[in-house]
């Protein structure tokens, strides 16, 4: 992970966004190579989600450039970004609640294949094996027929991941992907996702509060504090960084155990 390839998958320069004069993200720059796993960490309100929202076009940056495989995609709409291979999950998971779990992934496959405009034929018969393969991949196959609205929150996160992966993305952004899961499940899901990303050359970027997950799975770590990057580098280096330690101690989180957060649904 030392020598960077000639062309980055994602190159971000001077990204900035403020709300009512308050800088949520202030001049963030970094790059991501295909197959690389990058963790974006920082206390609550540091600007991680805002960063992600700019990366997939959800919100328009006030300043800065985003390049995807050399193409300037700054300010491009999310649906065009998706067409260029950017997939994401949301901090507050967003799925299609009235559909079955399987239909959620089928919908994602249909969009990816450009078949969503067809006004005839039964949608529930399209991409069924593909959908089930992705559900199996994230461990949701047993719940394929349930309405997505009934899933436990950790499973909703899994469903989002299956939907994102089914579009064969080049860049995958995951905002708190393991929220709501038990600690043991978290590692399993991250291991499978990271392996999949490395095998397929997907650039993977995630935010996470569970430091154990971060230091186990990330190739590199970016640390955000009040909208600024205060450290970036290999996990071991970042862990020892005094600024980072100060930020985290100030934010009430430590690197010791991996308490995770408590949105978990029992």
């Amino acid at each position: 992970m030392t020598g960077r390839p000639a062309m980055d998958l994602l190159a971000v320069e001077g990204l900035a966004k403020s709300y009512g004069g308050v800088g949520a993200v202030r001049g963030v720059s970094f790059a991501l190579a295909p197959g690389e796993v990058l963790a974006l960490i920082g206390p609550n309100g540091a600007g991680k989600s805002t960063c992600f929202n700019m990366l997939n076009g959800q919100i328009r940056p006030d300043a800065g450039r985003i390049r995807l495989a050399g193409t300037d995609v700054t300010g491009m709409a999310p649906r065009r970004m998706a067409g260029l291979g950017v997939a994401r999950s949301f901090q507050i998971a967003a799925t299609f609640g009235s559909m079955t779990v399987r239909e959620n992934v089928q919908a994602a496959c249909l969009v990816h294949a450009g078949g969503m405009a067809r006004p005839f034929g039964r949608a529930d018969r399209r991409f069924r094996p593909e959908a089930e393969r992705w559900l199996d991949h994230v461990g949701l196959l047993a719940q394929a027929d349930r309405p997505a609205a009934e899933l436990a929150y950790g499973d909703v996160k899994r469903l989002e991941l299956a939907m994102a992966l089914s579009g064969a993305p080049r860049l995958l952004l995951m905002d708190e992907p393991t929220a709501g899961m038990a600690p043991k499940e978290r590692h399993g899901l991250m291991r499978a996702t990271v392996d999949h990303a490395r095998r397929n050359g997907i650039g993977l970027m995630f935010t996470e509060h569970d430091m154990d997950i971060v230091f186990t799975h990330a190739d590199r770590v970016l640390v955000l504090s009040r909208g600024r990057l205060i450290a970036a580098g290999r996990p071991e280096a970042v862990r020892e960084d005094p600024d980072v330690r100060a930020t985290y101690l100030g934010g009430g989180l430590t690197f010791a155990a991996a308490p995770g957060r408590t949105e978990a649904v029992s």
Binding site: E103, Q106, A107, L110, V111, R118, G121
Partner: peptide
């Protein structure tokens, strides 16, 4: 149909 699934999809979550 796929179109109808898309219509339900944007209804359930335009964001997604």
């Amino acid at each position: 149909s796929p179109f109808g699934l898309g219509l339900r999809a944007v209804r359930d979550s335009a964001l997604r």
